[in-house]
Design a protein around this nucleic acid. Structure first.
Lengths: 299, 299
DNA sequence: AGAGGTTACGGGCAGCGTAAGGATC
DNA sequence: GATCCTTACGCTGCCCGTAACCTCT
């Protein structure tokens, strides 16, 4: 009689079309996967995979079984969510985080995770959203707090919060009378997020529409560095003020009043809709709570 | 992470409200059940049963889990039916059979079971329908071929065949001209099924309506013995002719033409609707096939 | 030769059954 | 004392990981 573990192994083997990738995903060895699948085939008295030269493919019965395996795993996820107390949940959550979140409420979220799920270890990887999107799809991340939503059939997006983007500069930097015009702004270098991120694209479009001479753009993958550069007066930062509340309060930076408004950036907790995404879904809920409880600067 | 076996053990423990009865049902020992339940409670981080003095009762979370456990077991049953070939099915089928079936097509059914499910051992117990009904409800039988249907929420009935009931006697027994009247019939002792069986009750009602003097009734739990007594000329048998085709063909018995008709008795394959009734349901289907393929005498 | 799956083998551990313990009626 | 569940303990057997092997490109 097959048990849930065997069905889980079969599910990933079938989904990834590979014994070794399944082993990797399940934190085990490839022979262990081989044996469990072989045991399943023995138990059912039929073959589930077509072992071809360089690849494995499901047989007809294998495709049927895959449906059942997924139903089993989803049922298990549902059961664990409904029955087991959070304290009983154990494991690792591979979390991807946009740096904007790091500078706002990530620490509160991590702390809440530690309180609610004391048995869960959170692996945090900070990166830009497109990279995390790929990592999610590859299964290298369980959950990502990123600029979203990402409209993809296999991804679930849970809205978190929205940040306004503003022009920010050190008090010493010289500008015309407020509201500052875009022409005034671009006389300084502009420091912002890297290319192929949402804020960069928005800024680029705004500048393109303006017919102004192309400014110097210092795009930087590290928000901390952007802040540091802005504080040093190297240019005008285009970032959410929420990420630099401390510096604003300390008088190191100020938000420029200007007509050159940029659209808000929305963040979502996004995870792959696998049959075993229980912890990711629960953590996404927790993130939504923390994000809602975190009072934005303009409130 | 709980496995299916643990959920199965929990299911029966909860359903039977007893660790020891669950152990009995699962063909294991009571400490083994105890340990698995304890392990489940540890895994979920909560208690599932209220251990009171003389009885165990589910907690609130336990009742929730029971629903999931049943869903898991039904899903497993469905999966095994859909995926595993019959050849892979192994185990024991505790089959209860009405003696009428024994005398008609039981052997064909047993043979078919052996062909289709070579890995299944069939334990046959012959008894009257009311006893088997209780055994089904107690879980002492997996499947019964009996006089049905039995209208009960926990029982599934699958119609099999219907037998006419006739008056049967040895050729030597003296009667008036045919069609024989009921008054003629009851001059001989009447040999039939035991009390509290359907045919006996039907016969009793017929006689009660007739206002005739009460005849001698030889009720007998063994159909073979009834046949033997009828052949010996000890009285008139009231049984389905289908059960004595051999004796009729051999001229040892004959069906009396009479107006005193008795209603047919219908048979069903009946089993308890437990979450693990896959083999019973499949065998019931097989029984229906065999019953349909068995040509009744009056055809 | 290298990637990917299978087979062989040794060790660890979970789970079972027997047996003893404890609580309640 | 009887019944029912729990705990203790030794054992079997499964399952995993390492390593060697096979096969196809």
């Amino acid at each position: 009689m097959p048990d849930l573990r065997s069905l889980e192994v079969f599910y990933w083997t079938a989904s990834l079309s590979s014994f070794s990738r399944a082993a990797e995903r399940l934190n085990t060895t490839q022979p262990a996967v081989s044996q469990r699948v072989a045991a399943l085939e023995r138990a059912f008295g039929l073959s589930l995979f077509e072992r071809q030269a360089r690849s494995v493919a499901l047989t007809a019965k294998g495709r049927e079984l895959l449906v059942y395996a997924e139903r089993f795993l989803r049922l298990r996820t549902e059961m664990m969510g409904a029955i087991a107390g959070p304290a009983a949940t154990t494991g690792v959550l591979r979390l991807g985080v946009s740096e904007t979140i790091v500078h706002t409420w990530l620490m509160r979220f991590i702390a809440r995770m530690g309180e609610v799920y004391p048995g869960v270890a959170v692996d945090v990887a900070v990166d830009v959203s497109p990279i995390m999107r790929d990592a999610l799809l590859r299964g290298d991340l369980d959950l990502a707090l990123l600029v979203g939503p990402i409209t993809m059939p296999r991804l679930v997006n849970r809205p978190l919060c929205s940040f306004s983007v503003a022009w920010i500069a050190a008090p010493g930097l010289a500008f015309g009378p407020e509201p500052v015009t875009l022409a005034e702004l671009v006389r300084h270098p502009i420091i912002t997020y890297p290319k192929n991120t949402n804020p960069y694209v928005q800024l680029h479009e705004l500048l393109a529409r303006s017919n102004l001479p192309p400014p110097r753009l210092y795009s930087n993958a590290s928000l901390s560095t952007i802040v540091r550069m802005a504080v040093e007066g190297l240019g005008v930062g285009v970032i959410p003020p929420d990420t630099v509340r401390r510096e604003i309060d300390a008088g190191q930076l100020r938000v420029l009043r200007t007509e050159a408004r940029l659209p808000d950036i929305g963040f979502t907790a996004t995870y792959a809709n696998t049959p075993d995404c229980g912890l990711a879904a629960a953590a996404a809920g927790l993130a939504a709570e923390v994000a809602a409880g975190w009072a934005p600067a303009d409130a």
